[in-house]
Write a protein that binds this DNA or RNA. Structure first.
Length: 281
DNA sequence: AGCCAGGACAAGT
DNA sequence: ACTTGTCATGGC
């Protein structure tokens, strides 16, 4: 059993909005207002006290040298290195984008695991956020490893390895009730576990080339490809457009986003998405 | 009961 | 190159 604790000063930060805004599906709010999630093979509790982010990791499945136990891993996960104040002042040069940012400026784009993000967003297709989370939880409890428990004693399971998921059949995944997405879940795992697949290459490729490579997978179109590049590879220039974003673009940005936003369009996208879903109007 | 959901895809214009 | 119907499932 390994345990670690890290503290970061993070500004601005709204931990709750960051974890619940639809980019991650593995964090659940505890009764005390903190969040418990499974990352890699560790159980993690995250708490915000003012501008301080407190991370507690406990695991029985990791070696002491596992990266999930290092401070750098969590700095990267919560994008502590990104200058959000600078991005916000840039975004506020546009009136409507400024309105979206100021609605929830503490939202940060997480840097999550590529493979888990790919499968999660394959599941997201024409689905609602609540059910995406419950399908992922079911998938993990069936084919992941038990890694610990939440504060209320619920057993928690790691996300299944690609090598495991890729060898399953649609019948094996029937309990997920994932409908027509099931073959694509297996297909995504097969893509990642293929000997020809190199995640690092996706970082070096142009955005368009990376999208097209991901879209070769069944069940991965332009929107899911952009989500994977943004949330699972830290490509902040990827700009996922779903039904909410389509509405936002026609009402708030009929002429498109300002050019100076494009290099970080994915981060801006999170503010717009959250604003459209939660601000009544 | 009926509409919608962080869409993709094939088939039809 | 754009538009439309369809897909499986459950939350609301």
């Amino acid at each position: 059993m390994e345990e670690r604790e890290f503290h970061f000063t993070v500004t601005p930060l709204d931990l709750g909005a960051t974890l619940k805004c639809g980019q991650a599906f593995r964090w659940n709010e505890e009764e005390d207002g903190t969040f418990t999630g499974v990352v890699s093979k560790a159980v993690v509790n995250a708490a915000q006290v003012g501008e301080t982010l407190c991370i507690r990791i406990s695991t029985k499945m990791c070696t002491p040298s596992d990266v999930v136990l290092t401070e750098d891993f969590w700095k990267n996960y919560f994008a502590v290195d990104v200058d959000y104040d600078g991005l916000h002042s840039l975004y506020r040069r546009n009136k409507n984008l400024g309105k979206c940012v100021d609605y929830a400026p503490g939202i940060r784009v997480l840097r999550q695991d590529f493979y888990e993000t790919l499968i999660s967003f394959i599941i997201s297709q024409n689905n609602n956020i609540t059910r995406i989370g419950s399908i992922i939880k079911k998938l993990s409890s069936l084919y992941g490893e038990e890694v610990g428990e939440s504060k209320c004693g619920e057993k928690l399971y790691s996300f299944p390895e690609a090598s495991v998921l890729s060898k399953l059949s649609v019948e094996d995944l029937a309990p997920l009730r994932a409908g027509y997405r099931t073959p694509s879940i297996i297909g995504g795992a097969k893509l990642v576990s293929s000997v020809f697949f190199e995640e690092a290459k996706l970082m070096e490729m142009s955005l368009q080339d990376a999208r097209e490579l991901l879209m070769e997978a069944k069940g991965v179109g332009p929107k899911i490809a952009d989500c994977v590049l943004l949330f699972g590879l830290g490509r902040f220039d990827a700009f996922p457009v779903d039904v909410w974003m389509r509405r936002a673009m026609s009402t708030l940005f009929p002429d498109g986003l300002p050019k100076y936003v494009l290099p970080s369009a994915g981060i801006a996208q999170q503010y717009i998405f959250h604003y459209m879903r939660n601000a009544n109007g």
